[in-house]
Amino acid sequence: MTAPAEILDCRGQRCPLPVIAVARRLPELPVGTVVRVLADDPAAAVDLPAWCRMRGQEFLGTVTGPDGPAYDVRRRH
């Protein structure tokens, strides 16, 4: 799996804020970049993949580490 180039710390934020954070940041990065989103709102697990599908971006998966649930997203276009 590609290592994330950047980490967006959205812990403590309620949905839709983590999704908004990705939507703001991803277009500023080069195509192919992977961003890791730290989000402890359980809705993020549903909404980040759904956003990727709606926006044609790539959802790479969920990685749960010491910082809690994390979600990797790759800019595809």
Partner: peptide
């Protein structure tokens, strides 16, 4: 919504 994999917010 979670089971369907659709936007929940």
């Amino acid at each position: 919504l979670e089971a369907m994999g659709v936007l929940s917010h």
